[in-house]
Write a protein that binds this DNA or RNA. Structure first.
Lengths: 195, 195
DNA sequence: CACCGCATGTAACGTGTTACATGATTCA
DNA sequence: TGAATCATGTAACACGTTACATGCGGTG
């Protein structure tokens, strides 16, 4: 959903065509998440279908700028007004991997943790190395993006350390090749989802 | 890609059929990421097509258990051996939202930050409230998942505070309705991607 | 009987990625 | 001339979500 709304946000600055939109998006995010040009056009098509943007007449040089409609403006405002739900986020692959490793035979869990930490620390160093390059105010957007990545990487490392410590205290026993039934009634975090 | 490999991991314990796989996955992750049953079957179909699983003959009660092949086992081992790349992760919607807010007219940025922090702190409280419920070792997998969510939420709050402070020092000026060209050659974080 | 839990699927849609095809302009 | 950049699109595919259809078995 982010790209949809990113396009709307960029079009609030001024009408733009597809190629411009891609450049503007990558400029704002510092190229952190490269954006395929094809997707811009398909997304623009859907946004037009939904009445959020409207194409302007083609320019003399063959460009098709798009204009933000009032409906699109409302949609954009709603986006900024609504916090991003944690429950709606994509699954955390590393958390899943570790959770499953605990109940999967023949997995060297400390090694899994160790490899992930090494990889994450390497990108963390890259981030901190690149970071001071820009401090001028117009680079501020992607500086904050970079900080977000930094904070997340740090959190992951802390989490990995935490897991390692826990597992050192309660070493995992893959008790046996399982026998009977699976999945004993979770009784779980459902309350979080309900709230 | 996580579900594909999760299924392979679960099948290493023992052959299972679709319905069982869903229950086992949600048991491991504590229901944090509910998994649609339909997707299990389509994914099983793709895994069979790729030679990673093989269906066993239907049981008397109409179940179709699947067996992990040796190719599937290799794929699974490769998954555990390879750290999750940060570059390949889904885009962080909140980071994008804030980055774009900085260059979008008529956005109350402090309010955006404030709302997000409130929402994230609420789920953080939920997590900490649910957490002590389970301490028995068989609940350990989803306890670690819960900790991952906790660490991430804390990191987001710290990041939001960080952004707020930065913006307080350098208040954003939406300088003017823009005029000429867009996207002045980023010269950005590309080095991170190259490495 | 009617409802619920188990169990297997299919269809439609949105989103994302990769790759390909096509032109216009610019510049060495 | 030939390559790079600008610019617009399409096709194929993977993945995820939601909803729907179907059948079996047990229980109130």
């Amino acid at each position: 959903m982010s790209i949809r709304h990113s396009i709307l946000a960029l079009l609030r600055r001024e009408p733009m065509h597809g190629y411009q939109l891609r450049a503007a998006f990558e400029a704002s995010t510092g190229g952190t998440w490269p954006l395929n040009i094809g997707q811009i056009y398909t997304t623009l098509g859907r946004l037009e279908r939904d009445g959020f943007v409207r194409p302007l007449p083609e320019t003399e040089s063959g460009q098709r700028p798009y204009l933000l409609t009032t409906a699109g403006e409302s949609e954009l405002v709603a986006w900024f007004d609504t916090p991003v739900e944690r429950a709606g986020r994509p699954r955390d692959e590393m958390a899943i991997k570790l959770a499953l490793a605990l109940t999967t035979p023949k997995v060297d869990i400390p090694a899994v943790i160790q490899r992930q930490r090494t990889a994450t620390m390497r990108v963390l160093q890259e981030y901190t190395r690149v970071k001071p390059a820009a401090e001028c105010p117009e680079e501020l957007p992607w500086l904050l993006v970079l900080d977000a990545l930094l904070f997340q990487a740090e959190a992951e490392i802390r989490w990995l350390d935490h897991c390692e410590a826990r597992l050192a205290r309660h070493p995992v026993q893959h008790p046996a090749p399982p026998s009977g039934s699976t999945a004993p009634a979770p009784a779980t975090v459902a309350s979080v989802k309900r709230s």
